[in-house]
């Protein structure tokens, strides 16, 4: 279209002869290609074999050592991936095994002083929060389910029940009181208590704990410390 007005130059610019590209007349041209090339074309030449020998063996074993060391070390940090529920469960189980490893200090405390302050974990704060949460869970669960019955009846009375935040706060206070009362009981109950935890936990899922990750077993729940991004696990 652009060359329409310039009649004279058109013949030269628009076509080219095959001779210009170095193809002689009468030489066979390749046939038209009607399909895309293969994604993995077979290599024209086979690659050379890898070198072997004691030196190479040494290098490989050194590599293996470094790898296995680092993977077991506290430097290796795994993310809880929960793309589907099964893999989420599997990784969760594995993580629980690893928890000890991950909580282990990466290096002695003096090394932390080499880093910017924002990176240094606040050990005390994290611990306090953890204890609190565990307490709440246990106490909410232990009293033969009476707690929950009470709460449910209360909810029925109030009808709509008001905003969830209030409910949560209420149950928290209650459970804390309960906790103090039942302190000596707890020691005696021991294993029974644990069993109850599992039983009642399912009910709790609909109640106060709905914001938690479904696959979180109660005791290790607060290990993640910072709960900024913790809500709404992706199932």
């Amino acid at each position: 279209m652009g060359s329409r007005g310039r009649g004279r130059g058109r013949g030269q610019g628009g076509t080219f002869s095959m001779e210009q590209l170095g193809v002689q007349k009468g030489e066979g041209m390749p046939t038209a290609v009607l399909q895309p090339p293969p994604v993995f074309p077979p290599p024209e030449y086979r690659p050379l074999p890898l070198s072997t020998g004691p030196r190479q063996e040494y290098l490989i074993s050194a590599k293996r050592d470094l790898r296995s060391y680092m993977r077991e070390s506290p430097f290796h940090i795994k993310q809880r991936s929960a793309s589907n529920w099964l893999s989420g469960l599997v990784t969760k189980i594995k993580e629980d095994e690893r928890v000890r490893n991950e909580d282990a200090p990466m290096f002695s405390s003096c090394c932390w002083s080499q880093f910017p302050k924002e990176l240094i974990p606040v050990a005390e704060g994290g611990k306090a929060r953890k204890r609190k949460v565990v307490k709440r869970k246990k106490s909410a669960v232990k009293a033969d389910g009476t707690d929950i019955l009470e709460k449910l009846s209360k909810l029925e009375e109030t009808g709509d029940g008001g905003p969830t935040v209030e409910k949560e706060a209420g149950s928290d206070e209650e459970t804390d009181d309960e906790d103090d009362e039942n302190k000596d009981k707890k020691g005696m109950l021991g294993i029974e208590e644990e069993e109850q935890v599992e039983e009642v936990d399912e009910e709790m899922d609909g109640g106060t704990d709905y914001a938690n990750n479904y696959f979180d077993p109660g005791d290790e729940y607060a290990d993640d410390g910072d709960d900024d991004n913790d809500e709404g696990g992706v199932y």
């Binding site: 974990p121 993640d224 410390g225 910072d226």
Partner: peptide, 9 residues
């Protein structure tokens, strides 16, 4: 999607 604590670590 990663906890800040872990990223810091």
């Amino acid at each position: 999607g990663v906890m800040k604590q872990k990223a810091k670590r």
